[in-house]
């Protein structure tokens, strides 16, 4: 009979079987509604981009692990797949395959493995790669195909005749507002932004509803906490409301700013990345407010129509500082204030 062995270990002793891998795949699942909407909207191109970025990122991870003489099976831990999937969601459908290879390389090798792999990267790899691609290929990264509904899939299955002279690309709502606020504003329907099947944009950002469904599940599972998204969204709403009140003709209303662009995917899925976000509640709130503020500054007065990726990366840089200065004081660690005798 085997001798019974006991392991001596620190708390916690009760464990629900959660692991980094399981969390990664859960986040992956919660992104599927948004991915499904974009496949409906952009057709097989969206599917191609998502599949390629995911597969290429896992491949790059395996390559890096082999080069560093680590166990290459670690590339299947879900983190590389999630990074690739998130990267794909931030890109326009219809982007060329070569750019996806560069993107996966930058995300996994430059932004993650060079710093020591999972848990050591100071900046969100998917966003680092997206910003790199935006500066590297400015034209391709701002060419947004118009969603065509089921047309693509019907053509693919031979159910519809290919239309040739449709408008194929168009500006995103944020770009249109930046270009000419007065002309663009009346044309933008809030429910279009919310359901997202008619607005151009990156693969993952078009449908606020689908993202909210995924985010709700993450919050329910307590994989993310409310602090960062709530702080970000509130800051954007307040900032948007203030500027709209000052000059309604020039600045769009706060609801537009909430539902347009990548704010939802950024606030719920990118800013809450465990590795690059602060740990403590107070730090998370400051971080979220910073993201919201920077996003609005870039959107309203910056050079780019959308600023969420830049905002999150900039706040990533502040994360170590926030972690150091916002440590909560544990209850009982400080002596109770001494009672001064009598009235003075």
């Amino acid at each position: 009979m085997e001798p019974r062995t006991f392991t001596v270990a620190f708390a916690p002793h009760v464990h629900d079987g959660s692991s980094a891998t399981r969390i990664m795949w859960t986040v992956f699942l919660t992104l599927l509604p948004a991915a499904a909407v974009s496949v409906y909207a952009f057709g097989l191109d969206a599917l191609r981009v998502l599949a390629l970025t995911t597969a290429l990122s896992v491949g790059m991870e395996a390559l890096a692990l082999v080069m560093m003489k680590r166990d290459p099976r670690a590339c299947l831990d879900g983190s590389a797949a999630l990074t690739g999937f998130l990267l794909g969601l931030t890109l326009p459908a219809g982007i060329s395959n070569g750019i996806l290879v560069v993107g996966a390389f930058v995300a996994i090798i430059v932004a993650k493995q060079v710093f020591g792999g999972l848990g050591h990267n100071p900046f969100n790899p998917a966003l680092t790669s997206r910003v790199f691609l935006l500066i590297a290929f400015p034209k391709q990264l701002t060419t947004w195909p118009v969603p065509r509904g089921l047309q693509d899939i019907q053509e693919f299955m031979g159910l519809a005749v290919t239309r040739t002279n449709d408008a194929v690309t168009s500006a995103t709502p944020l770009a249109a507002i930046k270009e000419h606020a007065q002309r663009a504003m009346p044309n933008i329907q809030l429910n279009d932004l919310f359901f997202g099947v008619h607005t151009p944009g990156s693969i993952g950002e078009i449908s606020a509803l689908a993202l909210l469904v995924g985010a709700a599940f993450l919050l329910y599972k307590r994989i993310i906490t409310w602090h960062i998204p709530a702080a970000t969204l509130l800051t954007v709403a307040v900032f948007g409301a203030l500027t709209h009140l000052v000059n309604p003709a020039r600045y769009a209303d706060p609801f537009f700013h909430l539902f347009a662009g990548g704010l939802f995917i950024g606030a719920f899925f990118m800013a809450t990345d465990f590795v690059t976000a602060p740990v403590w509640p107070m730090g998370k709130i400051i971080y979220g407010v910073g993201i919201g503020l920077l996003t609005m500054l870039i959107r309203l007065w910056g050079g780019y129509p959308e600023g969420i990726s830049f905002a999150i990366l900039l706040m990533n840089a502040v994360t170590p500082l926030l972690d150091r200065y916002t440590v909560p004081t544990p209850f009982g660690s400080r002596a109770a204030p001494k009672k001064t005798g009598g009235e003075s």
Partner: peptide, 12 residues
């Protein structure tokens, strides 16, 4: 045919 990676001749 192949679009160059503009960022490579910039500072980053």
């Amino acid at each position: 045919a192949v679009s160059p990676i503009l960022v490579m001749i910039l500072a980053p």
